[in-house]
Nucleic acid binder design. Structure first.
Lengths: 161, 161
DNA sequence: CTTCCCACGGATATAAAATATCCTTAAATT
DNA sequence: AATTTAAGGATATTTTATATCCGTGGGAAG
């Protein structure tokens, strides 16, 4: 099991989009060029983000995407679930029902004990992602990325909006 | 991203194997029949568990598998990692290095901030799985599965060893 | 009003991974 | 000697991920 690479793309794109000035947009083309990923495919990820209400797009020249909410209102989970879906990473097929010793009167009032644990782990994963916001990421970047690179990057983005 | 169905199979198989009396074995055939899953493919999962040292197998008639350790010494994580691997569910492709504003002298002393969060979430997932042992599962089953079914199942297993 | 740039979405192609089956080998039991 | 079984290699099938292509229509600018 490995997450789709679109998760990585989407997360980095949202990070970049935090640089976009209010009322302006950054195009898919610019985002694809910035990350050196195929534009058409990246477009699918951005569409998913758009449908999830995380970013909003507009058409025409000077069109593109921008964040639909403040960075402090967007969590990693929002982004990952937009790409990966909200369903659990563990799919219980109710294998326990195949137990040959079961009879018709053995109904299942409780969910499968194995699945419960797996779902709990899934919830722990999601809780961690829910606990980190885009604004937290920006703060971390400010602390770890060289100031000149950060500044140049911001200028690069603004220049393309 | 969805976990392989072999995880479910492996977990349930280990649960069943806790019924096996000392010095005896339960065959792949019996486990496949019990769960109604394809024997040949289940065999691959059991081989993975064997290689991970969670179960041990022996050949010949009356051969099969048994737990290699006490149920209290086997965690959900042990089993899931035997099937799914120990690698993180998030693969960082260092997309940040494609930032066109970067120059040669911009080295990365810190890991990618996005990846760090994703890895943290992965660790939370694993920690939850590490916190549950096969013995805990047995306890839960004792509390939630009808006593007669539990007993019949135990007898079914012992009968096949 | 015309032209161009863009998001959006459908259709399709390709690559990779998961799922599944088949078969051979060698070890243990009877 | 015959049978049962794990182990593991090879291969086939199905599903998912990755990627590309193209048509539509909205919006900006000349």
């Amino acid at each position: 099991m490995i997450l789709k690479n679109q998760n990585e793309w989407a997360l980095h794109c949202c990070s970049v989009l935090s640089w976009v000035p209010p009322e302006r947009y950054l195009s898919t083309k610019a985002l694809a060029e910035f990350h050196d990923v195929p534009k058409e495919y990246l477009s699918k990820a951005l569409q998913a983000l758009s449908q999830a209400g995380i970013v909003e797009g507009t058409l025409g020249p000077s069109g593109g995407y921008r964040l639909a909410r403040k960075p402090s209102d967007i969590t990693f989970l929002d982004i990952v679930e937009a790409i990966e879906g909200k369903g659990s990473t563990f799919a219980c097929t109710e294998i326990r029902k195949n137990n040959p010793c079961r009879t018709a009167k053995h109904c299942d009032n409780k969910p499968c004990a194995v699945a419960r644990v797996m779902w709990e782990a899934d919830a722990a994963w999601r809780n961690t992602l829910r606990g980190v916001r885009l604004s937290d990421l920006a703060k971390t970047l400010k602390e770890t990325v060289p100031a000149d690179l950060l500044e140049k990057t911001g200028a690069w983005v603004v220049d393309r909006t």
